[in-house]
Nucleic acid binder design. Structure first.
Length: 391
RNA sequence: GGGUAGAUACCGAAGUGGCCAAACGGGGCGGACUGUAAAUCCGCUGGCUUACGCCUUCAUUGGUUCGAAUCCAAUUCUGCCCA
């Protein structure tokens, strides 16, 4: 096992903020496995790479011999973390949450070592709490402390409501730390406040205070905003190897360095051409969620599609020609809706044709009036990333 | 409750009777160039149409007018000021 100093050096990589580094080192010097907490709220059934940054760090702790504790916030998810929110979250039912929790666990164990992970649901303790216990807990935090939060302050300034249940959230998250005697809590930078409440409550309970270990929020594919479903700049863990690979290849070199840091905990290999480095990154991430084989497949698919521009061997969605008008605009528009569930107006489709995006078996078709002799087996290229095979 | 300013397409924002499907910027999309990278350049960005053009759209409803995003009235919502 590496020395505490060595461990610190390994762990520090990619961290946004550690409160505090000295405390962390001191804890590492205790020479026992530390309780490392990561709380996740199963609010959505599908998760993306942004969510895996914390898990990756947790895995690192695990590999160094520490105890990973994954808290599934079945109770807290129903409230909804107000962090960084300009609006109240919609409340979920316990059933919704438990359904999501199953997927979460499944995905989490693609990164964590299941044998060395303790999974707990915070409903375990919150469900049992009586009202006077809740009041007691509440009496330890002041309104003023809660209102210091930037997101609440902003909402009050902007005359957006802040509901009382929302200010319970940090208290609950903090209480989780007490219940599991956390030595370290991992979280995104937006979790700072919540994690600090955990320290306060631990002190009140006479426990040693946890180290707060914050990770940056992963930028999305656009390289600017944080990865989020609503911005459409995400890579979903459930996406196919080909899509995942392709999405990862579209990032900039700067962003690639970030992804190496945060998703692989490594530096970009300096001796490789940036494109090769990116292909390796993509293949490894795909492999993590879909297996080694899929990583290779993603790469092969990508290379024949884009490097060799050879679509003949690539698997493509099929577009049945039967019943379609024989002009190119109709076919293109149908291809989008049938094969990709994308609504393209005829105007849009015509624009693509006129602007030279459409290719039939490698030949550009730029006349919207064209009625080529379509035949089954031909490849119709729609845009940079989408093609279909006629059937 | 009183006053006042406003509500325009994905977002920001011009337009204040016809030349408005609506400037400009951002975003998005396509092309060229590439490493499906970045940067750069060009083009597109309500619907239908080969096109002339037609249709729907500037908060909602009704009105004035040959003609309304633009004028009037009512309604809804929002900002600011006063109480």
């Amino acid at each position: 096992m590496p020395t505490p100093e060595e461990q610190l050096a390994i762990l520090k990589r990619g961290a946004a903020q550690i409160i505090s580094e000295q405390d962390l080192l001191a804890k590492l010097k205790l020479g026992r496995p530390l309780n490392v907490k990561l709380g996740v709220d199963p609010t959505a059934p599908d998760i993306h790479l942004g969510f895996t940054v914390g898990l990756t760090k947790l895995r690192q702790f695990q590999d160094l011999g520490h105890q990973a504790i994954l808290i599934i916030g079945d109770f807290t998810a129903m409230i909804g973390d107000p962090s960084g929110r300009s609006k109240t979250r919609k409340q979920l039912t316990h059933d919704d949450v438990m359904r999501n929790a199953t997927t979460f666990k499944e995905q989490a164990f693609k990164i964590l070592d299941p044998a060395k992970t303790r999974v707990v649901f915070n409903g375990e303790w919150f469900e049992m709490m009586t009202f006077d216990q809740v009041m007691k807990l509440n009496s330890r935090v002041t309104m003023q402390q809660m209102l210091q939060r930037e997101d609440f302050k902003k909402r009050i300034d902007e005359k957006e409501p802040v509901f009382l249940h929302e200010i319970q959230y940090p208290i609950m998250q903090g209480w989780d730390s007490v219940m599991i005697k956390a030595d370290i809590e991992l979280g995104g930078t937006d979790q700072l406040f919540n994690c600090l409440v955990g320290r306060d409550l631990q002190r009140e309970e006479g426990q040693p205070q946890q180290v707060v270990f914050l990770l940056p929020l992963l930028e999305g594919l656009d390289g600017v905003n944080k990865m989020s479903k609503s911005l459409g700049n995400y890579v979903g863990l459930a996406e196919t190897p080909e899509i995942m690979f392709g999405k990862l290849m579209s990032i900039t070199d700067t962003l690639m360095a970030r992804y190496y840091d945060l998703l692989l905990c490594e530096s970009v290999p300096a001796d490789l051409h940036p494109m090769e480095a990116k292909k390796q990154l993509a293949a490894r991430i795909v492999a993590r969620y879909h297996g080694e084989e899929a990583g290779k497949r993603g790469r092969d698919d990508f290379e024949s599609r884009f490097s060799k521009k050879d679509l003949s061997t690539v698997e493509l969605p099929a577009l049945p020609l039967a019943g379609l008008a024989p002009d190119i605009v109709s076919i293109v528009s149908a291809a989008y809706s049938v094969c990709f569930q994308i609504a393209k107006s005829r105007g849009d489709a015509r624009r693509l044709v006129e602007q030279g995006s459409i290719q039939l078996d490698g030949e550009k078709v730029s006349d919207p009036k064209a009625t080529p002799a379509f035949a089954a087996g031909q490849v119709l290229k729609l845009d940079k990333t989408r093609s279909v095979r006629l059937a």
